[in-house]
Simulated assay, not measured.
Amino acid sequence: MKLLSLSKDLKEKKLKDYIVKNKESFYKIAYSYVKNEYDALDIVHDAICKALSKIDTLKDTDNIKPWFYKILINTTTDYIRKNKKYIVVSDDVLEDSKIDYDKYSDIDLLRAVDSLDEIYKTVIILRYFEDMKIEDIAKTLDQNISTIKTRIYKALSKLKIKIDIKREDG
């Protein structure tokens, strides 16, 4: 019994350390979906609470990244489903934002990623913005590796088309 609680305490400590080190990445992912600072903060807070309450389901602390990202993405998806009341904000408002970490250097790329279907958007964000390995993405999304590779390939194809169209228009 004492060994089990020690294990739980160790998991909690590793989780807390991981959260502190990566909180901005979590915020960026949530923000990329909801485009609202306060909603993104709520999502991250909820995901952290869920992770702490489900710490017993973490079997190996080496898998903390895919385990937490799965919770974060599911929390984000649930939040979006429950709150389908988003207002489209003009680009001027977004560009006037004073928060540096809400801005990305390539706005066309972000718009293109944002316009993807959720299954493609998620794999692109995890792979290229969060630098996750394909195996970790597969664990996070409960999919097999070949499915993830196919989704990444399709998403990149769609992004190339959208960005090429933008260049032709611009």
Rank of each mutant, 00 (worst) to 15 (best):
L58K: 10
G170P: 02
I80P: 03
A30S: 14
T61S: 10
K139Q: 10
I43F: 01
I125C: 10
L110G: 06
K2V: 07
K139V: 02
K149G: 04
R151F: 01
I87V: 12
D17A: 07
D91E: 07
E130R: 14
D46G: 10
D91Y: 06
R167H: 09
R167Y: 11
D100R: 08
E12P: 02
K50D: 07
I148M: 00
A47L: 10
S7V: 04
V89W: 07
T75V: 07
D62C: 10
K98M: 05
G170V: 06
I163V: 13
K154T: 12
Y18F: 15
I64K: 03
V20K: 15
I107D: 05
N36Y: 00
L4D: 12
D56I: 07
S7P: 00
K158Q: 12
T77V: 11
L6D: 10
S7I: 01
K54E: 13
D169C: 03
K162N: 11
N83Y: 05
E12T: 05
I124C: 02
I119C: 15
F129S: 07
D92C: 00
R81A: 04
V20F: 09
D91K: 06
I71P: 04
K121T: 00
T140K: 13
T77C: 02
T122F: 15
Y31W: 05
K14M: 02
E130N: 14
F68I: 08
R127P: 12
Y18G: 00
S32I: 01
S32A: 13
L109D: 00
L41G: 11
D39A: 15
I73W: 09
W67R: 02
S90E: 06
T140N: 06
Y33F: 15
V113W: 13
W67A: 09
I124E: 09
R167I: 11
K133H: 11
D9N: 08
L15H: 04
K14D: 01
I137E: 12
Y79I: 03
K50M: 09
Y38S: 15
I148L: 14
I55E: 08
M1C: 13
E24R: 12
E135V: 11
N36E: 09
S53H: 09
D92L: 07
L15S: 01
A112L: 04
D96P: 01
I163W: 01
D60C: 11
D164L: 03
I148P: 00
T122E: 13
D169Y: 08
K139R: 08
R127H: 14
V113Q: 05
L156K: 14
E168M: 14
A112D: 00
I124V: 09
T77M: 06
D42K: 01
D108N: 10
Y69G: 05
E12S: 11
V93M: 11
N63H: 02
I161T: 03
D142P: 04
D96K: 09
L116W: 06
L4P: 07
F68S: 00
S146Q: 09
A40V: 05
K50A: 15
E37S: 14
D117S: 15
F68Y: 09
A51L: 10
D96L: 04
T147S: 15
L94K: 11
N22Q: 10
K149R: 15
R81I: 08
Y153F: 05
E130Y: 07
A155R: 03
K121E: 02
K8Q: 11
V88C: 01
S105L: 05
L72I: 04
Y27P: 06
K35I: 03
I71G: 03
K160D: 06
Y101M: 10
V89C: 06
I99T: 06
